[in-house]
Design a protein around this nucleic acid. Structure first.
Lengths: 126, 126
DNA sequence: AATAAGTTTCAAGCTAACTTGAGAGTCAAG
DNA sequence: CTTGACTCTCAAGTTAGCTTGAAACTTATT
């Protein structure tokens, strides 16, 4: 199949697929006589793996590191990256929880009519 | 005080402070005869407000919208942005929770020795 | 003076993950 | 044989929030 069909099947755009190839996420693919890219179903599966990985929060750099030169997944690499990503997720969860706490406090202050200017000290005339 | 001192007191760099001014987060400040920026304590407090706002996850664009033309905080604006940010935080928490679930599942699969290639379908020879 | 440290402006660079555009070639249908 | 839909490559643009660099000026110290 050509790039347009692959794009439709994966929900990506042709330019994204070319971009992934350029970034080394897709192994260079065979071409027709006219120079058109010709994809197998394996390419489609590879793109699905990439899409799932992105949903898990892996960067393209990290995803690239999960594949060997031959195109195989590297199990121990993936395990490592997964552990790393899990720690990142926990960090971000803590950040969000803290932001949420402070935002709720801020909202409470703003809703308290008796306080006029909560944290804004600059006078009208500077 | 000049920009270097203000930078030290706030933990920012001079270029960041100039950048904030350029972005309209700091009202243009008075200058010495030589053209050096001369800051009051109000500028410092404004920078602290900006730093806190950033910690809460507000973008510079949003932070700019929280100040009126005169440099005052706009209470109702802030309340609105706070509610919006709270919803964003919840969304991101859901995203992270879902990623965490899937990452844990992935790790479990990877640690299960009986499965050799969990989601990698491309053969060695393409 | 001379030197160092601080300041000025303006333009350009950085990261991530793409998108957009230009200009050209290809392919199928009518 | 021409129109329209695809495809190609390569370069440059996008967003956010800064940083870095160049070239020039000021201020303080020696």
């Amino acid at each position: 199949m050509k790039i347009g069909e692959l794009a439709r099947k994966t929900g990506l755009t042709p330019s994204t697929i070319r971009f992934y190839e350029e970034q080394g996420l897709l192994s260079p693919v065979s071409r027709t006589a006219a120079g058109y890219r010709e994809y197998s179903n394996y390419a489609m599966e590879r793109l699905h793996v990439i899409q799932v990985s992105k949903r898990l929060g892996f960067s393209l750099d990290v995803i690239r590191g999960m594949f060997g030169a031959n195109g195989q997944c590297l199990k121990t690499e993936i395990l490592e990256r997964t552990e790393t990503r899990l720690r990142e997720v926990e960090e971000q969860q803590e950040t969000l929880a803290s932001q949420q706490r402070e935002l709720l406090a801020l909202r409470a202050i703003l809703l308290d009519e008796s306080i006029s200017r909560p944290f804004c000290a600059e006078p009208a005339v500077n």
